[in-house]
C-alpha cells in the first residue's frame, strides 16, 4: 500500500466525489426533515397520540432495518440513479428525526402545557410557542443522528449508480486495492465528523437559547 497513491486518489477524485456525496446527504436530509417533522407533530395530536408508544417502538424497530436492505427494496421499484438513492436515504433519515420529534413532545413537562392551555393559548399557539421550541434541542439531536447515518449509508448509493464516495470504496473492493477503500472511508469519516461537530455546536446553542 502506498501513502502517495492514497493522496493522489484523494487529490484527483476527492473534490467531485465529496460534492456528490454531500449533495446526496443534504438533499436526502432536507426531504427527511420536511417529512419527519409534520409526521412527528401529527403523531402527538389526537387521535394518533393514543397509539404514541406503539408508533415510537415502530420507529425504533424500523431503524434496525439494514441500510443495504432499504436501498435494495427500492431498486426494483425505482430503478437506478440519483433519484431512487435520495428516496431511500430520505426514508432512512426520517426515522430518527420523527422518533426524536415524537419523543421530545411526548416528554414535555405536562405542567407547562397545562399552564399554557390555562392561560388561553390556542392549540396552534401552544404548538408554536411552547411545544416546538422546547422540543427543538432533541429534534436537532435527531437530525444529528440522521446526518451521521446518511453520510455512511450514502456510500451504498454507488451500488445503484448514484455516485459519491462509495465509488472509491467499491472500486477498491473490486480491484483489491486498499488505497481506494481507505481514501473513500477516510473522506466519508471526515465528512461525518465535521457535520457531527457542527450540529453538536448548533444543538448546544439552541439548548442554551431555550433554557435547557
Amino acid at each position: 500500500m502506498g501513502v502517495e497513491r492514497l493522496f493522489v486518489i484523494i487529490q484527483e477524485q476527492g473534490i467531485s466525489l465529496i460534492q456528490r456525496h454531500l449533495y446526496l446527504v443534504f438533499v436526502s436530509l432536507f426531504f427527511a426533515i420536511i417529512i419527519a417533522l409534520p409526521i412527528g407533530i401529527l403523531v402527538t395530536r389526537p387521535p394518533f397520540n393514543r397509539k404514541i408508544n406503539q408508533i415510537l417502538s415502530f420507529l425504533n424497530t424500523a431503524q434496525g432495518v439494514p441500510s443495504l436492505a432499504v436501498v435494495a427494496i427500492f431498486l426494483p421499484l425505482m430503478g437506478v440513479g440519483v433519484r431512487p438513492a435520495i428516496f431511500a436515504l430520505s426514508i432512512y433519515a426520517l426515522l430518527p428525526i420523527a422518533r426524536n420529534t415524537v419523543a421530545a413532545i411526548k416528554g414535555l413537562d405536562p405542567d407547562v402545557l397545562e399552564a399554557a392551555k390555562g392561560m388561553g393559548l390556542s392549540k396552534k399557539e401552544v404548538l408554536l410557542k411552547v411545544e416546538l421550541p422546547l422540543a427543538t434541542p432533541i429534534i436537532v439531536a435527531g437530525i444529528q443522528t440522521a446526518t451521521i447515518f446518511t453520510v455512511g449509508t450514502a456510500t451504498i448509493a454507488h451500488l445503484i449508480g448514484a455516485g459519491g464516495l462509495g465509488r472509491l470504496i467499491f472500486t477498491g473492493i473490486a480491484m483489491n486495492s486498499p488505497e481506494f477503500i481507505l481514501a473513500g472511508s477516510l473522506m466519508a469519516a471526515a465528512i461525518a465528523i465535521t457535520l457531527d461537530q457542527l450540529l453538536g455546536l448548533f444543538q448546544r446553542r439552541v439548548k442554551r437559547k431555550f433554557g435547557g
Binding site: D109, D111, V112, L113, E114, A115, A116, K117, G118, M119, G120, V130, P133, L134, K209, F210, G211, G212
Partner: peptide
C-alpha cells in the same frame, strides 16, 4: 374565557424557554 381567569398551579408550569 381562560384569558380572563388567572391560573396558578403547584409546579408553576413556567415556560422554561
Amino acid at each position: 374565557l381562560r384569558k380572563k381567569i388567572g391560573y396558578v398551579i403547584q409546579k408553576t408550569g413556567l415556560f422554561p424557554h
